[in-house]
Design a protein around this nucleic acid. Structure first.
Lengths: 229, 229
DNA sequence: GAATTCTTTTAGGGCTGTCTAAATAAAATA
DNA sequence: TATTTTATTTAGACAGCCCTAAAAGAATTC
């Protein structure tokens, strides 16, 4: 198992260069808040590990090997599952989840990862709309997500509404919530509490229970600011 | 903030010697799975830190200072809260919680500690009957605990039953569950599922929902085996 | 009280991951 | 192309935490 420091290098390379590009020494130094010389040293060591998680060429930065890519995605999966868990189960808000996940992602076991995923219903995207890598290393295609998965503050648009409960559908159209409607999630009570929404161009305020909110799918809001979330 | 290694030393001293005794080099080496020479080195360093978490006298082992005691209790609080959380919220069983908590206890923030505690209703004992130190460093007196807080496998005795729901009381006496009755928790479905119990000397099997189980208080089972749990 | 045994400490290293300062290579500019 | 600027690497060091081997102190036994 790679050390926490190594995992952070792999994650940083992935976030800077994706799964095929090269990350420069300087960009890694900036992202990891270490001196450039430290990055060089680490990359040199990683490149001769067996199996090597990175390919490294002097003066041309580092690229993830298949092995390194696998590991980076696993760490990112941990990170995003933890963020969603903190949000859904413990009332964390948008701005609070990242730092906490940053430390926990290195400390959870495979087993805990699995149970968290199960508890969340094997989610495919985090509340920012970032996809959560699957256990096999594939990445779910970006698509709409549940209103329940949004962080407070998000502005988005209804993409569809679950069609298996006519009563709920009737209720929603009374509120003016149909595909295409703009929504602004202004507040959320913790512990599966109600969501406060501003609906449509008139910004009508409505409170929605989690039961109902779970049936509403919205387009992923643009991910802005933080990059890992 | 002390390093993870330091926290483990402080916790080990507390577990070996309590909050006033001295822990020997050898006992610490055994508990932490390191060489005795490593323990000596660490204790010497800790004793000259400022503020120093331990008092150390050559050949006479180490004792926690007030400062060190405070920190040890904080780590133990983390550990036990996490164990209870994994058990109650994620379906972990007795034997699974310890190792997971051992790593997570170093990674959670004060904020997460608080939210976990809140979510669990500020519990005072973990499922083994070990008290959970409070935030101020005091330790709750040992007393009975909820049947919900028991781990699978525990054998115990009913100490009292909540008296504010006569219907539940009637139901329980039908099952033969009254103060003094012995109970063996044989099984527990995850995610707030039902508990399977063997009741009384005849070991009658009954399934109890969490609603009802929450009303039953039992004496803490003897803590055996693991010491941190 | 002396000898033996057990425990603890000292001495000297190793590994990981970081740093600064100086050297070198690559890129940009004149 | 020559020069300057910027990015990267090398060299040498250090802190934290661990190790083994050998020395020294404490406890036990004779």
């Amino acid at each position: 198992m790679p050390s926490e420091a190594v995992d952070n290098y792999l994650k940083a390379i992935y976030e800077i260069a994706g799964d095929d590009g090269r990350a420069s020494t300087a960009s890694l130094a900036r992202k990891l808040s270490v001196a450039p010389a430290s990055v060089t040293g680490m990359l040199q060591k990683l490149a001769v590990r067996n199996p090597a998680p990175v390919e490294y060429e002097k003066h041309h930065g580092a690229r993830l090997s298949d092995h390194g890519k696998q590991r980076a995605l696993e760490v990112i999966r941990h990170h995003r599952l933890i963020e969603l868990f903190l949000h859904r189960m413990l009332g964390y808000s948008w701005d609070e989840v990242h730092d906490e996940a940053e430390r926990l992602e290195h400390a959870i076991s495979e087993q805990l990862e699995d149970r968290i995923a199960e508890r969340l219903g094997d989610p495919e995207v985090d509340p920012h709309g970032h996809p959560i890598p699957r256990k096999d290393g594939t990445i779910p295609p970006r698509r709409d997500l549940s209103l329940l998965d949004l962080f407070v503050g998000a502005k988005t648009m209804v993409s569809r509404v679950s069609d298996n409960d006519p009563e709920i559908l009737r209720y929603l159209s009374e509120l003016g919530i149909t595909p295409g409607t703009t929504l602004h999630l202004t507040e959320r009570a913790p512990f599966d509490g109600p969501l406060m929404l501003e609906v449509g161009p008139d910004k009508e305020k409505h409170a929605l229970g989690p039961r109902v909110a779970g049936e509403i799918r919205v387009v992923p809001p643009a991910a802005n600011g933080e990059t890992t979330g």
